[in-house]
Amino acid sequence: MKVDMKVNGRAVSGEVEGRTLLVDFIRQTLRLTGTHVGCDTSQCGACTIHMNGEPVKSCSVLAVECEGAEITTIEGMANADGSLSTMQAAFQEHHGLQCGFCTPGMVMAATALLKENPSPSEAEIRHHLEGNICRCTGYHNIIKAVQAASGQDVQPVAAE
């Protein structure tokens, strides 16, 4: 069946099966490979995208459910001039990523947090990111990156 949606501001359409997951539509049909698949039980959060402004694990949504939806993926997060968004830049500045595989999902989840809570505490950030697993960073620098992106003072890396 055919599905139409808006992805990163662009109208797209494609043929899908009823069982096609949104993440497979994004990765396979649209070839937007920044969104990753890290598990098969909706636990890891690597596939987090924004659907109509809300963070959603795209492995737990069928493509056909997204008819008419506005989807944003990591490829759509940079500023209009192509520079990194505040959140993306903070992840680099504070070494909030290593292998980079969970990173798109982390950035999507963290960006959504700041929309609803512009100045979250450490505990609030940890709570919000509980559904996003990172195996590299121990979360330490991710927490700092999110704090920094929200304008809070953060100790510089390598001086603590």
Binding site: H36, T73, Q92, C99, T103, V107, V157
Partner: peptide
Amino acid sequence: SSKRREDIRFLSGTGQYTDDIN
């Protein structure tokens, strides 16, 4: 503590992991 150059592609979704190869 130089910032990592590889981060740009990982943060913008343009990394090239094996499953991204078709």
